[in-house]
């Protein structure tokens, strides 16, 4: 008898919780769908941007087709190692990106001395890749200088790729982090300062701040180790320094 009121309270509680969850997911879906950059009307997302940029980007890209032109500058670094979702762009872009993708899987196991020779070969390949990457960077720069506005990548915020090296690293880290994230606390957060040398190698990963969740810290370090295998060298043969805040995606966890 006496437990009835509490069960009733529980029902109310779950309903409030469900409503909250629904609203939060709605909110996240809406915000993730890239409405912020221009604060445009939410109903007119990607297409609008595309249309605006089309005439601006296409002449610079110098490609015959108008449509693939604006899409091209953004994708290379993002799509290079993993997905090839975009329609075939010009050959100049696909070629360099595919080489580091090949070099990637071979890197992770420089364990034994037996593989020394292979590593030598790999080094050579790497330098080659660096040259090619430099070429991409050049391209990227040119495009970036032209139109800073979102280049029409569906679902992108305009910083996804191409706009600068930091965002490129960020997106590589994000991809890796998806496959390593784990935690044992509610809202873990880790701030790591990465120093990347001119070969695209992480020479230092300094833990600047942590919420103290060791499981989470380790998952971040694993993400860095994993992503590092596919890093392209920073532009202009220089090093790169950047702080990154790692945390779980908003609503999912409680």
């Amino acid at each position: 008898m006496t437990l009835q009121p509490s069960r009733h309270e529980g029902r109310l509680g779950t309903m409030v919780a469900v409503s909250l969850m629904v609203h939060l997911t709605m909110f996240v879906i809406l915000t993730r769908a890239n409405f912020f950059p221009g604060l445009k009307y939410p109903e007119a997302p990607v297409y609008y941007v595309d249309v605006v940029n089309l005439p601006v980007a296409s002449p610079r890209a110098g490609s015959p087709a108008a449509a693939p032109g604006p899409a091209a500058p953004a994708p290379p670094p993002r799509t290079a190692p993993r997905e090839m979702t975009l329609p075939a762009t010009s050959p100049a872009k696909t070629k360099p990106t595919s080489t580091p993708a090949k070099a990637g899987p071979q890197k992770p196991t420089p364990e034994t001395a037996r593989e020394f020779e292979e590593r030598l070969a790999q080094l050579e390949r790497e330098t080659e890749a660096r040259h090619e990457a430099a070429a991409i960077e050049e391209l990227k720069k040119r495009v970036a200088a032209g139109g800073r506005a979102p280049a029409g990548m569906p679902g992108a915020t305009g910083k996804e790729a191409g706009s600068d090296y930091g965002s490129y690293i960020q997106s590589r880290l994000r991809d890796a982090f998806k496959t390593t994230i784990a935690s044992q606390s509610k809202n873990p957060e880790v701030v790591v300062h990465l120093t990347i040398d001119r070969n695209g190698k992480v020479v230092r990963a300094r833990l600047e701040r942590s919420s103290g969740d060791k499981v989470f810290e380790d998952s971040v370090m694993r993400a860095i180790a994993k992503a590092e295998q596919n890093f392209l060298p920073p532009p202009r043969g220089g090093g790169f320094d950047q702080g990154f805040i790692f945390k779980p995606q908003g609503v999912g966890k409680k």
């Binding site: 008898m1 009835q4 009733h8």
Partner: peptide, 13 residues
């Protein structure tokens, strides 16, 4: 409905 049921039950108690 839940509210009513709850109220009834509380009343019963």
């Amino acid at each position: 409905v839940v509210l009513c049921c709850g109220a009834l039950l509380v009343g019963g108690c």
